[in-house]
Structure formats: structure tokens, C-alpha cells
Design a binder for these strands. Structure first.
Length: 746
DNA sequence: GACCTGCTGCGGCATG
């Protein structure tokens, strides 16, 4: 629900703030409140609903929320925290603490950082006299519930406001389910449930966000959207073709031979361009994978050495040690030395690194939500444009090349993504396969918190409107029976019906790693001179004298200690870029698939393409026309059959499951699916049958999905429940399958 | 042909 606030309402808003806050505002040198701030002040002070504040990164959302929230709690004397600020990142809490501490000090409102790295002293003080604002992570709330339940009630149950920062980060994935469940449990303890305020920059579907924030009554959530004047966007899409006879481009990337004699792969040429254009200013280069980040950082450092200039290019990703990452973040924020970070998605969210001159992407992105978040890092000062460069790598086309490569999907996707960016499209969130796994986590947590609980109150506490709405009472009792069975032993039931932890459950809950709903893999720790550089996957083959590229430099393994999983390394001129595992790809929305088709059908040549990208676009369109893909969807190649669907990754996966149900094994890709050793004559009757189905029972399709359950506790999820959840979450996509099959036949 | 995120309580010791 959006509310109109007239100009006359906005007058006098400033005077409604606490005098000490007004003074702080004057001290900041602010001349006026932003409109979003004024509107939030009115909503917080005059109304009672929950609020979502959707505004660009630099719009002052946090202040918008905290100025009226602090005004409203200034006179409170009730013990317990008045405000909980929940953040997905510790670093964000530290940034926020710096901004809030001074303001709150003048109001004599205590602020405490409550996360794993925060000082024990601060937490102890808050435990003794809980009051004011707590800045906390979801995992620390979980820890409080399970390790000190009495304190959790005392500290959390009387909050007036719960502020959720980076709300969009919680709309997807198991961690979002986790936070939503914790909020529900906090409400259940409270006499009066706290008002919730969600802060976010990019949200594709505000209705979805409102439903997350207040599941029982989404329509009551007030949505405050800032009309932002987006800065001028300067963008370029650059095309690169890998050299011929590159059997294994990955290996070539890893080997990093880019001397004059060796074959120069696309990344070498991209590195030249980055080196020439980014030196002298602060920039972010998003590499897409840790491997590409290390490869690019290594190349850029060597270019600096060769040119005898100080290196300005440093890698940043999740496997690098905190110290190395913070050194780079400080260097960016400080702004004294020109700095370019080559990063994965680590520098996408929140953490304060100041404004950068440009953003580059190696590889066409798939997520508009991510891309917008990344772009938000540039053009933050008034009058400065946002600068975006997308570098696309395409395989060399020879006689043996397949038609999917000849369609140059990377180039087409880059154009499609830019078109959707300009159309202000942001994807909404899709199914979450970790529902049942996360419910098991919360069942263990509540039993630990309460010491024991009967099934009915447990169901009422966790299920119903909220993250586990799709779990019925029957599903729930089936799940309890399964995890209480003698073979699983997570829980057991006393003769009086009370559920308690059993042997395995005890073990899981006692571990420190219980608090997070996501898993951490076993890793090697790389050290040099006693200093930790970061971690490598345990599967990376290492032995004494192995060479490795890491943290943007080259190393040789001097020693390895198996029990502590430590590698001692020292600098070395050679090195191989490690693989960091994983085989998934970033999901694409339905709209992106459709937009790619539009790009093929259009003859428009966007001015932001460089010469090579123009050629690749033209060649891709030529292939599209030659294959008559404007008119047909089934194309045979050798003994395989391609089915072009032009849909997103989830719809394509569901289609593949529907085909499996009909007896056809399919491989999924960006365009649709490929049927191995199948002719069009063989496939058409099956597609026809699918197209003619008046209704498909989702359960029938679910039966053919592999690896159907996800999450940390997936091994404890009964197969039947996993399939029911998949069917429920994908019901509307499944219902669209006959139409999709008919489309493929037309 | 992916990425990211988080962490208690206790004993023992040094320091102010």
C-alpha cells in the first residue's frame, strides 16, 4: 500500500524530530531532509504499520528509518532492547555502528554491536542492562535463542521496532527463511509485536517483499519508494573471441601464459584494456568466479610490473582472508591511492567503500538485481555519470563449432541485459528448495530453546503464515516422525508427548556451526610467514612444491600440515590458478530468455557495442535467421535435438522434468533443452502429448526431479516431503508446461 | 558454466 503525502504534510516534519536529533542534523551540515526521509518520519510517527523503504543506495535510507525511530523511543524506560537492527553482514553492522553511535550518544541511547566478532564486553554490558539499539546478525539471534533462551526473552521480546537492512538479501534462499522464522518467534514472545521496517535498494516484486515482512497481512505494509533521478549511464559492451584450437580454455586461463609467443586468450586482451583504462582511479571489476578474479588480478599485476608502475589491481573474494580483504576495502574507501578491486559478488552489498569511477563485468550477467546493485557503486556523487563496461568472451567459430556457440549467446545476453536494465526490470524471487531443511533447523532450535515442546504448539509456533506456510499439519507430523525414527535420531518423544532432542540432534545443536542455516566446506588455510592469506577448497590437489596463484600473487607450497589443514607457502614466479569447485550457474529470469529472443529478432544495433561485439551480434542474428528460429523451436544437430524455449532457468528445469516424466532425457541450457540422440519425429508425439494435457499433476512431475531437496539438513528430509514442496513451489510453472510444449511444436 | 553470508561458552592467561 502506497500512501500519498502532500507537500504541506512535509512542512514542519523536521520540527517533529527529537531536539537532540535536530541538533545532530544541523551539526551534519544538512540543509534539508530528503523526501524519503520526510515521508518516513511521518509514517513512523503518525501510523502503526510496518514499512518498506525502497530507495537507491545513496538516498539515506538508514537515517530515514532511524531519525523517527529514535525520536519515538527517546523517552522509553521499559527494559529490553527498543530497536533491533538485523543485518546480513557483520561489516555492515560495524559501518552502521559508526554512524549511529555519535547520534545515539547525544540522546543517551545505548547502541550495541552484537555479532561474532563484536567485543564480549559490549554484550555483557547489554546483558546486565538491556536498553536502546542492538545491531545484530540472524545467526547471533539464533545463538541467543538456543544458548541463553531466558536472556533472549528478556532482551528481544519488548522491542518496539525491528529494522531489517538489505531486505532483498533475505527474499531469496534459506537464510531469508531463517530470519523470517526468527522474527515470528520474537513476535510470539512479545506482548505487542514490534513494528518491522525493511530497507532495500533493489526489489523486483514489492508485493513479495511485503509478504516476507508481514506474512499474515502483507496489504498493511506501507511502501515508501524514493523516486530517484538515476545518474547518467555511460556503457559499453565489448566483444572478444577466444583463439582457435583452444581445447580447454579453462586450462589456458589457469596456465596464464600470455607472453608474445603463446596464444593470447581473450582474458589477456581484456586485461590490456582494463590496464589502459582503469589505472589512476578507483574501480570495481566483477569477475563472476573466484578463478577468473585470480586470473585477471594476476594478469593486471604482471602488466604493472612490466610497465614499472605501482600495482593498483587487487583481488577480493570470499576465500581471501579477512585481513587482506579489509586492507583493500580501506584502500578503496581512503581514496588516496588509485585502486581497482577485481572481485566476485563480495563488493556488491552494502559495505562502505566510497564511490568508484566505473564498474566492469567480465562476462554478461544474468541477474538484473545484482547488476543494479553493482552499478549503485558508481555515479553516487551528484553530476557524475555511472560507467559500466561489459566484456563478453565468445568461443572461436570453426568448422566443428555447434550451433549454440554460433548463436553467440554471451553477446546477445549482454544486449538483452542492458535492454532490461534500461527498462528498469528487476526479477522477483523464485522457489527456495531449502524449506524443509530450514524447518528441521528451526524445530531443533525451538526444542533447544524450550527444553521440550509438544507437536501441536511447535507446529503453531513455526508454521502458518510465514516461511513455512507450505508445510501442512500432515507434512509436519510426517517430518517429526521421520526425524524421530530410530535410524535418524534427531528428536524423540517422551511418554507424555513432549518432543526432546535425541542423540544426533544433541550433537548438531551443540556444535558452533549450528547457528547458520548454510554450510561451510572443509578448506586448506594458506599461510605465509605466519600470516593467513585465505582458504582453498580441500579438493584442490596440493603437495609439497605445488604452484598456486592466490591473492593476486604466485606461490609455491613449502609445507603442508594435514591435521590443521594448513599450507605454508612462499612467493614463486610460477603458479596455477585454482578451481574453486561448484557446477551451478546463476539463474536467469523468464523475462531474460524472452528478451534474448527479442534481440535476435530485432535489427537494431545498439551504439554501446564495440566493433567486435557488433560483428558477434550480426553473426548471432545471422545464425538465428539461418536456423529459422523466428518460426520454429525444434532444430536437429547431428543426432541431437535442440528445443528452443526462450524461458528462464527455473522454467527450463521444470520443462526438463516434464520431459523426463514423458520418457525423454534432456540437458538444460540458456536457450532451452537438448535431447540426446533424439529425432524430431521421435520427440514430436511426446511434446504433443504434453501439449494436450488439460492439467498436469505437479506430483507426477516432481517424481522425476533429481536432487530435489537442498540445504544443510537435506539428508534428514523425507523424500516424499521434498517432492511435495517442489510441486507446491513450482505449481504455476508446471501448469504452464502444456502451453510451453505447444509453443515448441508451433 | 556461481557467488555470498555466520558462530557459544568456558577455562586459562596476561594486563591495568
Amino acid at each position: 500500500m502506497s500512501s500519498a503525502i502532500s507537500a504541506s504534510d512535509l512542512e514542519g516534519v523536521y520540527d517533529r524530530l527529537d531536539p537532540k536529533i535536530r541538533r545532530w542534523i544541523r551539526d551534519q551540515g544538512w540543509e534539508e531532509l530528503r523526501e524519503i526521509q520526510a515521508r518516513t518520519i511521518i509514517s513512523v510517527l503518525d501510523r502503526k504499520q510496518d514499512i518498506i523503504i525502497a530507495a537507491t543506495t545513496a538516498a539515506g535510507k538508514t537515517e530515514a528509518a532511524f531519525l523517527p525511530v529514535l525520536t519515538s523511543i527517546a523517552a522509553r524506560i521499559k527494559p529490553g532492547f527498543s530497536v533491533l537492527y538485523v543485518s546480513p553482514l557483520k561489516a555492515l553492522i560495524n559501518d552502521q555502528f559508526r554512524r549511529l553511535d555519535e547520534l545515539c550518544e547525544s540522546m543517551e541511547i545505548p547502541v550495541v554491536k552484537w555479532h561474532g566478532d563484536a567485543s564480549q564486553a559490549g554484550k555483557k554490558k547489554a546483558l546486565a542492562k538491556p536498553d536502546g539499539v542492538a545491531l545484530i546478525t540472524p545467526e547471533s539471534i539464533e545463538a541467543m535463542f538456543t544458548r541463553r533462551p531466558a536472556d533472549a526473552r528478556r532482551l528481544l521480546s519488548s522491542a518496539d521496532f525491528i529494522v531489517i537492512d538489505e531486505l532483498h538479501a533475505f527474499l531469496q534462499g534459506p537464510r531469508g527463511l531463517h530470519v523470517a522464522s526468527l522474527l515470528r518467534r520474537i513476535d510470539a514472545m512479545a506482548e505487542v509485536p514490534a513494528r518491522r521496517i525493511g530497507l532495500s535498494a533493489t526489489i523486483g516484486d514489492l508485493g513479495q517483499a511485503a509478504a516476507w515482512l508481514r506474512p499474515a497481512s502483507p496489504s498493511t505494509v506501507e511502501i515508501l519508494e524514493a523516486k530517484s533521478d538515476a545518474p547518467e549511464l555511460r556503457l559499453q559492451v565489448r566483444g572478444y573471441v577466444e583463439p582457435p584450437d583452444l581445447d580447454d580454455p579453462d586450462h589456458a586461463e589457469g596456465a596464464g601464459e600470455d607472453g608474445e609467443t603463446a596464444q593470447r586468450i581473450a582474458l589477456d586482451v581484456i586485461a590490456d584494456h582494463l590496464f589502459q583504462n582503469l589505472r589512476g582511479s578507483n574501480n570495481l571489476v566483477f569477475g563472476g568466479s573466484r578463478r577468473t578474479v585470480e586470473s585477471a588480478a594476476d594478469r593486471l599485476r604482471r602488466r604493472s610490473e612490466k610497465a614499472s608502475v605501482p600495482n593498483e589491481f587487487y583481488p577480493h573474494h570470499g576465500s581471501l582472508s579477512k585481513v587482506l580483504r579489509e586492507e583493500l576495502e580501506d584502500r578503496l574507501k581512503d581514496g588516496k591511492l588509485p585502486t581497482t578491486a577485481i572481485c566476485t559478488s563480495t563488493l556488491e552489498l552494502g559495505v562502505d567503500i566510497g564511490s568508484v569511477k566505473s564498474v566492469a563485468q567480465i562476462g554478461a550477467p544474468r541477474s538484473l538485481s545484482s547488476l543494479r546493485q553493482r552499478l549503485g557503486r558508481t555515479g553516487r556523487r551528484r553530476g557524475t555519470p555511472s560507467v559500466l563496461r561489459i566484456y563478453v568472451r565468445e568461443p572461436y567459430i570453426g568448422i566443428k563449432s555447434g550451433m549454440l556457440d554460433r548463436l553467440h549467446p554471451g553477446t546477445i545476453r549482454a544486449v538483452a541485459v542492458v535492454r532490461l536494465l534500461l527498462a528498469a526490470f528487476v526479477e522477483s524471487s523464485g522457489p527456495i528448495p531449502e524449506v524443509a531443511s530450514t524447518l528441521i533447523h528451526q524445530i531443533l532450535s525451538v526444542i533447544t530453546e524450550r527444553g521440550g515442546i509438544r507437536p501441536k504448539p511447535l507446529f503453531d509456533l513455526l508454521c502458518g503464515p510465514g516461511p513455512f506456510l507450505s508445510i501442512t499439519a500432515t507434512d509436519f507430523s510426517d517430518l517429526l516422525r521421520h526425524i524421530g525414527s530410530p535410524t535418524v535420531k534427531l528428536i524423540e518423544q517422551a511418554p507424555d508427548g513432549i518432543l526432546m532432542l535425541a542423540q544426533e540432534g544433541e550433537k548438531i545443536v551443540q556444535s558452533r556451526s549450528f547457528f547458520a542455516v548454510f554450510e561451510a566446506a572443509d578448506e586448506w588455510r594458506l599461510t605465509v610467514g605466519g600470516r593467513t592469506l585465505g582458504t582453498l577448497p580441500i579438493s584442490f590437489p596440493v603437495h609439497k612444491d605445488s604452484l598456486v596463484v592466490f591473492a593476486g600473487q604466485r606461490w609455491i607450497v613449502k609445507d603442508l600440515d594435514e591435521p590443521t589443514k594448513t599450507l605454508v607457502v612462499s612467493p614463486h614466479p610460477g603458479g596455477v590458478v585454482p578451481r574453486f569447485e561448484r557446477v551451478n550457474i546463476e539463474p536467469a529470469a523468464d523475462r531474460l530468455g524472452a528478451e534474448m529472443r527479442e534481440v535476435y529478432l530485432s535489427s537494431d544495433v545498439p551504439p554501446y557495442l564495440d566493433q567486435k561485439a557488433r560483428e558477434l551480434l550480426a553473426e548471432g542474428r545471422e545464425t538465428f535467421r539461418a536456423l529459422e528460429l523466428d518460426r520454429r523451436s525444434l532444430v536437429s544437430e547431428d543426432r541431437d535435438l535442440h528445443v528452443f524455449l526462450w524461458r528462464g532457468s527455473q522454467a527450463t528445469a521444470v520443462f526438463s522434468a516434464a520431459l523426463a516424466m514423458a520418457g525423454l532425457a534432456a540437458e538444460v541450457h540458456d536457450f532451452g533443452v537438448t535431447l540426446d540422440k533424439t529425432t524430431a519425429d521421435e520427440a514430436m508425439p511426446i511434446l504433443q502429448k504434453l501439449a494436450n494435457m488439460p492439467a498436469i499433476d505437479p506430483a507426477d512431475v516432481a517424481a522425476f526431479v533429481e536432487n530435489i531437496s537442498g540445504g544443510k539438513f537435506r539428508d534428514y528430509v523425507p523424500d516424499g516431503l521434498a517432492r511435495i514442496q517442489w510441486a507446491v513451489q513450482n505449481a504455476s510453472l508446471i501448469a504452464s508446461m502444456p502451453a510451453t510444449a505447444a509453443q515448441a511444436l508451433s
